[in-house]
């Protein structure tokens, strides 16, 4: 028996919008720790890891570990039917091939339940090693989204380069080139607008912009994004979900052959 009640149901709506374009079908894992997912995109270039900790739910009952295969497209369709202020409850019975999403309006005058078919998904689970990153950039998520969108109109790849001068995003396309430099800015009065760069070593890596633009769909989840870089390692783009967990995207770099 599984029953997870989330008063701020809009978080789940935003999570689905943040991952559904990258991954079509995925197994959601439910344990005492929380509600989580790890999945790769179909070309195995990017990986998304989601964690919603059990403490973040108003009610969390998960009698035994469960892995539930879901079409993210269909789950997003169902969650779109929930109001932004609705309380969302996820329910599943042991051995059932369906999951139920219950939506309650804040005044309790409207209650809806949507039952969705589960599916069998063969998925590979990868071990993500703990790594010390050479550079960690924290910046406003909206700024990062804007940069990826703008550069995507000019080129296909972005070169991210962190030096003591700041973080530089560069692209090159048929029409020309573009460079955007963001300097450290530790605005004390507005921490959500700060750009903080922690650098052990200068690092330069190249990535496909298409994936970065897909990750930026998580922007409504967090005001800040953290980009962790090390040479010859996948970049980690993390959006923290207040008091609940995170959505982390890992993207394999383009490597010179």
């Amino acid at each position: 028996m599984l029953e997870l009640r989330l008063v701020q149901g809009s978080i789940l709506k935003k999570v689905l919008e943040a991952i559904k374009d990258l991954v079509n079908d995925a197994n959601f894992d439910c344990s005492a720790t929380g509600f989580s997912l790890q999945a790769m995109d179909s070309s195995h270039v990017a990986l998304v890891a989601l964690l919603l900790r059990s403490e973040g739910f108003e009610h969390y009952r998960c009698d035994r570990n469960l892995s539930m295969g879901m079409s993210l497209t269909n789950m997003a369709k169902m969650l779109k039917c929930a109001g932004n202020d609705d309380i969302v409850t996820i329910k599943a019975d042991d051995g059932s091939d369906t999951i139920t999403f219950m939506f309650e309006s804040p005044t309790q005058d409207k209650i809806a339940d949507f039952e969705m078919k589960l599916m069998d998904i063969d998925s590979e689970h990868l071990g993500i090693p703990e790594a010390e990153y050479e550079a960690i950039v924290r910046m406003p998520s909206s700024e990062f989204a804007r940069i990826c969108k703008d550069l995507g109109t000019i080129g296909d790849t972005v070169v991210i380069s962190v030096t003591k001068e700041g973080v530089k995003f560069s692209t090159r396309g048929d029409i020309g080139t573009a460079n955007i430099v963001c300097r450290q800015n530790t605005s004390i009065d507005k921490p959500e607008e700060a750009t903080i760069i922690e650098m052990q070593e200068p690092v330069t890596l190249t990535f496909a912009l298409r994936y970065m633009n897909s990750f930026a769909k998580a922007t409504p989840l967090a005001t800040q994004v953290t980009i962790s870089l090390s040479s010859e390692l996948p970049v980690v783009v993390e959006y923290k979900i207040a008091e609940m967990g995170y959505v982390r995207y890992y993207l394999a770099p383009k490597i010179e052959e």
Partner: peptide, 14 residues
Amino acid sequence: VNQQSQITSFFSKT
């Protein structure tokens, strides 16, 4: 020339 690498070449299956 830059070649796209895959996540599976950095992280191993568990």
